[in-house]
């Protein structure tokens, strides 16, 4: 986005150069540590810190899978985050469509209530939710506690409020004439939603999906209380490398990198949508 037709003054250019250089360093150092340490032999990460590995080895990338059952955690995280994302996006689209296209009683109450759940400290409902899931399990036989289902349910509501809020904003920017035309052409309201509104709102929907996936992939508190050995996710599983007698820092860094690649790659590929989605939606 170009701004003024004039060339910026030197003072501006210099401040920009210095600031962005320092910031790049701040951002990059941990990333570099993560990558370089994941390629070091164990001796390099137990002794004094080295900027460069004494020898490059891919050994940590082989060992991570046997030190802890990383593959199992990976699959668990993938199932939980994937399912939570799909459900969260579908539900958010329905809600946002209702709020942006219809007048109804309780609309304000709904949006305010949903948004205000964002301010709840997670710690307030951790234990009650745990008790609730156990009780539901005892009463109906549906295992929520310790199961992936319970975690999916929990995570999808974490991303729901922000997703609804962002999509309401985004749908407001989709011209109403579009869905009206579809209604006139004989589509029902849901037909208009799926054939016209959803395709036009793809950038917003992708942005919300990225957000929902990241939320579920990175959560630690509920994952550490609500999972057991078979359903453990990466957030908890990664701590397995440091509770042993030796701390395998090279393996921890390798595992961190492996679990980060799917989200970071996805995020960077889709960040254009995220900015577009935010521009049209949340910050309009």
């Amino acid at each position: 986005m170009t701004r003024s037709p004039m060339a910026p003054p030197r003072s501006f250019l210099w401040s920009r150069r210095i600031f962005l250089t320092l910031l790049t360093g701040f951002v990059l150092v941990p990333v570099y540590v993560m990558i370089s340490s994941s390629l070091k032999p164990l001796a390099d990460v137990t002794g004094e810190f080295r900027w460069l590995p004494s020898e490059l080895t891919i050994r940590p990338y082989i060992d991570i899978w046997s030190t802890v059952p990383l593959a199992k955690y990976f699959v668990n995280s993938l199932i939980v985050a994937g399912a939570a994302t799909v459900c969260s996006v579908v539900i958010a689209v329905f809600s946002a469509y209702a709020v942006s296209r219809y007048d109804f009683r309780g609309k304000r109450v709904f949006t305010v209530t949903v948004l205000s759940t964002q301010m709840f400290p997670g710690i307030l409902f951790l234990l009650p939710l745990f008790l609730l899931y156990v009780n539901i399990g005892n009463a109906t036989g549906i295992a929520l506690f310790g199961s992936r289902g319970g975690l999916i349910l929990t995570y999808l509501t974490f991303s729901l409020p922000f997703s609804i809020w962002m999509l309401i904003g985004y749908l407001e920017s989709v011209p109403r004439d579009l869905d009206e035309a579809a209604l006139v052409d004989g589509c029902g309201p849901l037909g208009a939603l799926f054939r016209v509104v959803v395709p036009a709102a793809i950038p917003g929907i992708v942005a919300v999906a990225v957000y929902a996936f990241m939320t579920a992939w990175g959560e630690v508190l509920f994952a550490s209380v609500m999972t057991n050995d078979t359903t453990r996710t990466l957030a908890v599983g990664l701590q397995g490398y440091s509770t042993l007698n030796d701390v395998y820092w090279n393996q921890i860094m390798a595992a961190s990198l492996v679990v980060s690649v799917p989200v970071v790659a996805g995020f960077l590929l889709l960040q254009r949508y995220l900015v577009t989605g935010l521009t049209a939606g949340a910050v309009k």
Partner: peptide, 14 residues
Amino acid sequence: LVPYALPVYAAVIT
């Protein structure tokens, strides 16, 4: 945007 995209535990453990 990388620090934001990294999962919390991976970033913090680094």
